[in-house]
Amino acid sequence: MPTSEQQPPQPAARIIPPQKPRTLRDSLWTGLKWTLTALFLVYLIASFQRTEFNLYTLISGGKDIKRVMYDLAHPDFSWVERDAGGEVVLSRKTGQPKPGTVPVLLDEMNETVMMSLVGTLLSVLLSFPLSFLAARNLTKGSVSGQIAYNSVRFIFNVLRAFPPIILAIIFVFMVGPGPFPGVLALALHSIGMLGKLFSEAIESVDLAPVEAVRATGASNNLIVWFGILPQVLPQFVAFSLYRWDINIRMSIILGIVGAGGIGFLLDQYIRLFQYQKASTCFLIILVAVTILDWGSSWLRERMG
């Protein structure tokens, strides 16, 4: 006997949601959205015009680059320098053969890596203590803390605002060309970057251990040391390694403005139309950056 329970369920009534109220504010907002979209599109078109974007110029310029492409495809892998006749050039001082493109570039690449290492180390050492002063959670509540917070934040912002290349140009003027101005430029810019990252790591610590250490009657210095540092140290190491990674690539560019390293030679080769040597240069940079990238991500994985 079919009972009422066994009957197929009735389809549920269609739900019509209540009308969303539409206020004057909503209408104004919609109008504003469309106006902004239109303005943005106009600006986008203007940008293409201003930057002289032209596919025809790009394609027709291809034939002029043939010679360059040929040289770039034939990198100079010489270990010793040879003259036009193919004879090995001997150094006038030592009587030994003069080093060719590969050993010269490897030596310069090494200088680039060393520059980035020193620059990164200096920035880590300086931004480490400063970052505690730039952490909101450690400085709020006292007038001197507020002053420290705001001034260190300001310093970090200023340092970050200067691109390293501009800093390098300034330092080349100050201390002359070579790797030293490059180191200074990298260090200064990285202080701003690392200081910001470090202080944000400090701001996101778990406060429970910090309160527990405070409850033991520890001084403020030891509260930071015992309660905060163990929490942020792995992040500090990871940020520093990442910064080193960035600085290696950055220091190649710095060479172009005379701040030492392989970038200096790369710039020279291009200016002198020695594209075979420039090609070797690109290859060495590519290999070095790839190896260091693997190395630093391997290290970071183990640190995290």
């Binding site: 409850a215 009657g217 163990p230």
Partner: peptide
């Protein structure tokens, strides 16, 4: 505070 120990709901051990 040096003479007063304290324990917490969330333990507060340093990781």
């Amino acid at each position: 505070r040096r003479s007063v120990g304290m324990i917490f709901q969330s333990f507060g051990l340093v990781p």
